[in-house]
Design a protein around this nucleic acid. Structure first.
Lengths: 125, 125
DNA sequence: TACGATGTTCTACGAACATCGAATTTGGTG
DNA sequence: CACCAAATTCGATGTTCGTAGAACATCGTA
C-alpha cells in the first residue's frame, strides 16, 4: 500500500455530464477566477502558486475549489505542488462553443483595459 | 411638454460598448434571470408580469433591474405596462457569439431537466 | 529530525445578493 | 372621482460570496 500518495482526500471533480451551467457562469463571473481560466487556456498545466493574481494564498485556494467543483479545471497533486489544468475537452463536450466565446469576450475586455491604461499613462501623466 | 410620458426617471441602459462581461455572466448565473432571457430570445417583446417564473412581483422587478443594468435587456414603458426586449444585436456586437452559446447551453440543460422529470413521472410513479 | 516551501482548512467579517411584504406611484376604467 | 391593475421602491431578513489571518498538513531537503 503506497504511503506517499493520497493521504488527503481525493480531489472531487464532477463528471462531464454533471457540469452545471449556472455553476460555470458563476465561477467565471469573478475576475480572479476568469484570469486563472484565461491563463490556463494557453498552457496545458500550471502550479497553483504561479498565477498572476493578487490575493492571499487562502483566497486563491478557495477560488481553485470553486473552479474545480464547477468542473472548469482539473487538479492533480504531485508531491507538494498541485497542478491545475483547464477541462477544455469536457467543457466542449458538455457545452459546445461556450468556453471559447466567453474567453473570447474576456480577451476583448482585457484588450480594452490595456488600451485604457496605456491612454491614461500617455495622456494623463 | 408632454405630461403623460416620463414622469418616472428614465430607465438606465448601458451603451453597447459599456456592457461588462462580468455583469453579464453574473446576471445569467441566476436561474430566474436566465429564464427571462431565454423566453425573451423567442419573441421580440413581452410584458413584465407574464414571465413563467415563481417569484414575488418585487423580486421580479429586482431581476429586471439587474438584467437591464447589465445591458441584457431593454425596457420601455407603455402606459401602465413595461415591455422588455432582449438586446440581441447590441450583445452580438459587443461579444460575438456569447449569448448564443450561453442560451444554447441553457437549452441543453433545460432539455435534460425535462427528460429527468418525464423519467421520474413515467418510471417512479 | 528539523526546517522551509506549498497549499489547505478553519474561522471570521463586511459586502453583496435573493427574497418577500408593505406602501407607493402611475395609468386605465367604471 | 373612486377603484383596480401593473409595477416599482423601500425596508427587512437570511444567505452567499470574496477576502484574509492563523493554524495545520504534506513534501523535499539539509
Amino acid at each position: 500500500m503506497p504511503r506517499s500518495t493520497r493521504r488527503r482526500p481525493a480531489l472531487a471533480h464532477p463528471e462531464p455530464e454533471q457540469i452545471d451551467l449556472f455553476d460555470v457562469l458563476h465561477a467565471l463571473s469573478d475576475p480572479t477566477r476568469m484570469t486563472i481560466v484565461s491563463v490556463l487556456r494557453a498552457e496545458p498545466e500550471r502550479v497553483c502558486g504561479t498565477f498572476p493574481v493578487n490575493v492571499a494564498p487562502s483566497t486563491l485556494s478557495h477560488h481553485f475549489k470553486v473552479l474545480r467543483e464547477a468542473g472548469l479545471i482539473r487538479q492533480r497533486e504531485e508531491g507538494n505542488r498541485r497542478f491545475s489544468a483547464l477541462r477544455a475537452v469536457d467543457l466542449e463536450q458538455r457545452f459546445p462553443g461556450l468556453l471559447d466565446s466567453i474567453l473570447a469576450a474576456h480577451a476583448r475586455t482585457a484588450e480594452e483595459a490595456q488600451e485604457a491604461q496605456e491612454a491614461e499613462e500617455g495622456g494623463g501623466a
